Amino acid sequence: MRRALEDPRIEARRRDPIPDEVDPAIEALVHDIIGKVADRWTMLLLEALEEHGTMRFTQLGRAVGRISQKMLTQTLRQMEEDGLVRRTVHPVIPPHVDYALTPLGQSLSAAFCGVWIWVEAHHAEILRAREAFAARASAAGAKSVLGA
């Protein structure tokens, strides 16, 4: 993933104290957006469009890999509804449709770039934790089989 530019408005808000009260409308929207964008396909489409720019439907499908046309269509429609992608239909035969991130989509991509950087910084710790968990689960499974 390409490192996105920081959004100065977001960086300024990070330094603000946590408010005592949260606007219920903002909280509801946060939960809605997280539910929509934290899925596998939205994240991968954000990444593909951020890295490659404007892409056609079939190019996006290939870039993401193992996504059905139905899921690709649903995810792109959802992203368009939320203002994250711009869908452009070119009046030619056969129809030519392409997708690009909007400025809003680019800013979301920048926010998720932090997750990528976090994983890069902590990948060894995550792998160690997973190995330790698997070893404990395996040992616990062996004990239950032996009747301990």
Rank of each mutant, 00 (worst) to 15 (best):
W41K: 08
P103G: 12
A48R: 05
R77Y: 05
L127D: 02
T42C: 14
A148V: 15
V92W: 04
P17T: 07
R136Q: 11
A148L: 15
H96F: 00
G35S: 09
E6Q: 08
R9F: 14
Q78R: 14
E81M: 09
L45E: 04
Q106S: 11
C113Y: 09
M43Y: 08
F57T: 00
G114L: 06
V97T: 15
V22Q: 13
Q59E: 13
H96M: 01
P8W: 07
Q78P: 01
A137I: 01
D23N: 14
Q106V: 15
T58I: 03
M71H: 10
G61I: 13
R15H: 09
R40I: 05
R14E: 13
M71P: 00
R62G: 02
P94E: 10
A48E: 13
L46W: 07
H96G: 00
A124M: 05
A124Q: 02
R62M: 09
E47V: 13
R62C: 00
V64L: 02
G114S: 01
Q78F: 02
A139F: 04
H31A: 11
V145K: 14
D39C: 09
D20I: 10
A134C: 01
L72D: 05
Q74H: 03
S109D: 09
K143I: 12
G105T: 06
W118P: 00
R130C: 04
K70G: 03
L45A: 12
V92K: 09
A137V: 06
M43Q: 12
K143T: 14
L44N: 08
H123R: 03
L146Q: 15
R130V: 04
L127F: 03
K143P: 08
